[in-house]
Computed example of a mutant assay.
Amino acid sequence: MDIRSLAIHGGANGDPYTGAVTVPIYQTSTYAQKSIGQHKGFEYSRTGNPTREVLEKLIAELEEGYRGFAFGSGMAAISSVLMLLKSGDHILVSDDVYGGTFRVIDKVFKNFDLEYDFINTSDIAKVRDSIKDNTKMIYIETPTNPLMKLTSIHAIAEIAKEKGILTVVDNTFATPYLQRPITQGADIVLHSATKYLGGHSDLVAGLVVVNNEELGNRMHFIQNAVGAILGPFDSWLLIKGIRTLPIRMDRHCENAEQIVSWLSKQSWVKKIYYPGYNDSQDVLSSQMSKAGGMISFEVDSEATVEKVLSNLKVITLAESLGGIESLISVPAKMTHASIPEEIREKIGITNRLIRLSVGIEYVEDIIKDLDISLK
Rank of each mutant, 00 (worst) to 15 (best):
T316F: 12
T167I: 01
N145K: 06
K333Y: 05
S235H: 03
Q179K: 09
T183Q: 04
I239L: 10
L370M: 05
S326V: 08
T151L: 00
G11I: 04
K86Q: 11
N111G: 13
A318D: 14
D133C: 14
R180H: 01
N278V: 12
D106V: 11
T22L: 12
I59L: 04
V104N: 12
G227E: 09
I159M: 03
R248K: 12
I105M: 08
R103Q: 15
L178P: 04
F173T: 14
K163R: 12
G198I: 02
K57V: 03
A155V: 05
M148I: 12
I328H: 04
W262N: 06
C253P: 09
T18V: 02
P146Y: 01
R103S: 15
V260N: 00
Y177K: 10
Q27M: 14
D2C: 13
A125T: 15
A12W: 04
V204A: 14
G65H: 07
V314I: 09
T350M: 09
K110Y: 14
N211M: 03
L353I: 09
S296N: 13
R251P: 13
I247K: 14
K333E: 11
Y66R: 13
V330P: 02
E64Q: 14
L263H: 02
V226I: 11
G68R: 00
E115F: 07
G241L: 05
G227L: 09
V21L: 11
